[in-house]
Each structure stands twice: as C-alpha cells, then as structure tokens.
Computed example of a mutant assay.
Amino acid sequence: MGTIQYGGVGDEIHIEDRALAHLKVVIATKLRRNESFTLSWKHHDEDTLGRSTIWLHPSIPLRFTFEEPEAPQLNVKWIEQLMQSASSTDGISLVDEVLETPAG
C-alpha cells in the first residue's frame, strides 16, 4: 500500500501501489503543465467510511511513497482514462483499472 503526502503535513492518503503508480503519471503530467485539479477517492475499509477530495496545485508539496521497490508495468488505457477524468470538471476519480482485452 503506497501513500500520497500532500501539503507537507497531515494525513497520508493510502492507495494501492499499482493504482498509485498510474496516478503519479497523471498527476505529474497535469502539474508539470501548471494545471490545478481535484483528486477524489473512497476511503479504505480500515479508515472511516466515506470519500475525500483534495485540490491539487503545482505550488503545494507532494510526495508519493511506494511499498514495492520496483515500479509496475503501466497500463496506457488506464492512464488515458485517468487523464480524461483529470481534465473534467469533476477531476480525477480513482477508478478500477481498465484491462485490455484481446480482439476476438
């Protein structure tokens, strides 16, 4: 389980390593372009029930921490879906991975 630490102080946002690796690509791309946006997620079972949203801005400190030492192979389709949501008025909503299915 990885974490996002946002704003230097405060609670850590716990996100599964594979999802966090994909989010990192999308978030870094948006912030590199000086774009602000929101990120929303559902709380994990061990946390209180509900969901949270944060406003991401290039001037606010951000740190990604991964439990796994090796980066996973990235799924381009999932990154594209997350990028689309990041550009929407709702911002990024952490959605399940889009699996590529063989043509048949």
Rank of each mutant, 00 (worst) to 15 (best):
G8D: 01
G8E: 00
G8I: 02
G8W: 03
G8T: 00
G8H: 01
V9T: 04
V9S: 03
G10H: 04
G10N: 03
D11V: 15
E12G: 11
E12Q: 11
E12F: 07
E12D: 10
E12P: 11
E12S: 14
I13H: 03
I13W: 00
I13K: 03
I13F: 02
I13S: 06
I13G: 05
H14Q: 12
H14Y: 15
H14M: 08
I15K: 04
I15D: 11
I15W: 09
E16W: 03
E16P: 01
E16C: 04
E16T: 06
E16R: 08
D17Y: 04
D17G: 06
R18T: 14
R18G: 00
R18E: 13
R18L: 13
R18S: 07
R18H: 10
R18M: 05
A19L: 13
A19Y: 05
A19S: 08
A19M: 11
A19G: 02
A19K: 10
L20R: 08
L20D: 06
A21D: 13
A21Y: 12
L23F: 07
L23Q: 07
L23I: 06
L23D: 12
K24A: 15
K24R: 15
K24W: 01
V25G: 05
V25W: 03
V26A: 06
V26H: 07
I27M: 13
I27K: 12
I27N: 13
I27A: 12
A28P: 00
A28M: 12
A28F: 03
A28V: 06
T29C: 03
T29V: 01
T29S: 14
K30S: 11
K30C: 12
K30M: 15
K30L: 13
L31T: 05
L31V: 09
L31E: 10
R32L: 11
R32M: 07
R32K: 13
R33K: 15
R33C: 09
R33E: 15
R33W: 03
R33I: 00
R33N: 14
N34P: 01
N34R: 11
N34F: 01
N34K: 10
E35S: 08
E35C: 04
E35I: 06
E35K: 08
E35L: 10
S36F: 02
F37G: 09
F37Q: 04
F37Y: 07
F37W: 05
T38A: 13
T38R: 14
L39V: 09
L39Q: 08
L39R: 13
L39C: 11
L39W: 07
S40I: 02
S40H: 12
S40Q: 10
S40P: 00
S40C: 04
